[in-house]
């Protein structure tokens, strides 16, 4: 690895289970110290990728490097520097939550006592309950506390908030922010877009075993139109606006003009609106949601068209 700031580097990863292809040449790069969102719908290959990065599964083809190590060959060494929260947390039915946190911490090589105490309080976790008595959300809290209280420089989180309520999600977001300040690297797999949008600097969108887009949110947004809604004293006709460069989906309703515009032409659009007496203007960058759907639509479209 010539780029020392890369925490996870994956090139052309392939994995099939029987006749099912789970990963079809997946590339992924996560920089050290960033919170990286790994987005995709169910069955797109997120968990398979994470399991390969953990050395639980062996890739059929391609190369994966995690913290400079081969996750299959050096899995034990690698695991001392990472903490993992599985998507479906299972606890030992006879061990209490507190015992499980301690055990996982010790297996990993220790955890920060102060942080452990603070996290247990923040997540309002009853540590004395046995594993079988916890709800899904509480099982997830146990695994999260164990991972967040560890000293590991890399955290791999597989849909960690799936069972958490909004209050606890807020706690989780604050913890993520804290991790980022401390320079930890986090790979956060999710299909909850708002969560990724709040927490992640960079995002990779995966579909059908391949990363279809990767970059900062600004970069990704750049490729997608901005939604504009303007209140005007002099309303032009829809046809007129539609003829301006870079405008799409134009509609006029009373004094309200709605349209989407390519980011490169936003400048020109604002200049064209200014002389018409703007009384209200909202200009919204695409939400990740829209970004996501746009990517999916084009991908799906491409697949439908026979080559």
């Amino acid at each position: 690895m010539d780029d020392v700031t890369t925490a996870i580097d994956v090139v052309g990863l392939r994995k099939s289970f029987g006749h099912t292809t789970a990963l079809d040449g997946l590339d992924l790069a996560v920089r050290e110290g960033e919170v990286h969102g790994f987005l995709g719908p169910n069955g797109s290959g997120k968990s398979t990728t994470l399991r390969i990065l953990l050395g639980l599964l062996r890739a059929d083809d391609g190369r994966a490097t995690v913290l400079g190590r081969d996750p299959w060959a050096d899995s034990t060494e690698l695991h001392r520097s990472l903490a993992y929260v599985p998507g479906d947390v299972v606890l030992w039915p006879t061990l209490t939550g507190g015992e499980t946190i301690d055990l996982l911490g010790r297996l990993r090589g220790g955890l920060d006592e102060d942080r452990r105490r603070r996290l247990v309080d923040a997540f309002e976790l009853d540590e004395t309950k046995k594993g079988k008595a916890y709800s899904k959300g509480n099982r997830q809290k146990v695994a999260l506390v164990a991972a967040l209280a560890s000293e590991a420089p890399l955290l791999v989180l597989d849909e960690p908030t799936a069972g958490l309520d909004p209050l606890m999600e807020q706690v989780f977001q604050e913890e993520l922010a804290g991790l980022r300040e401390r320079g930890r690297t986090v790979l956060l797999s999710s299909h909850v877009l708002s969560e990724v949008e709040r927490a992640c600097e960079r995002v990779s969108i995966v579909r059908a075993g391949r990363v279809v887009d990767s970059g900062t949110l600004t970069e990704l947004r750049h490729l997608t139109r901005t939604t504009v809604q303007a209140e005007l004293r002099e309303v032009p006709t829809a046809v007129e606006v539609g003829a301006w460069p870079g405008t799409h989906d134009v509609s006029v309703e009373g004094s309200t003009l709605r349209l989407t515009v390519d980011p490169d032409h936003l400048d020109a659009l604002v200049a064209a609106l200014a002389p018409r007496g703007v009384t209200g203007l909202t200009c919204r960058p695409p939400t990740l949601e829209e970004l996501f759907l746009a990517r999916y639509r084009t991908e799906a479209h491409r697949e439908e068209v026979p080559a």
Binding site: W92, T94, L95, T96, G98, E99, T100, I101, D102, L103, R106, L107, E127, T128, K129, K130, K132, A133
Partner: peptide, 23 residues
């Protein structure tokens, strides 16, 4: 009834062997 247990693990619960034998 489901009973409560200790909030912290015993000192001995440290490795895989300790875990498997405890279970």
């Amino acid at each position: 009834p489901a009973r409560l247990g200790p909030a912290r693990a015993a000192r001995s619960l440290t490795g895989p062997f300790a875990l498997v034998s405890r279970l």
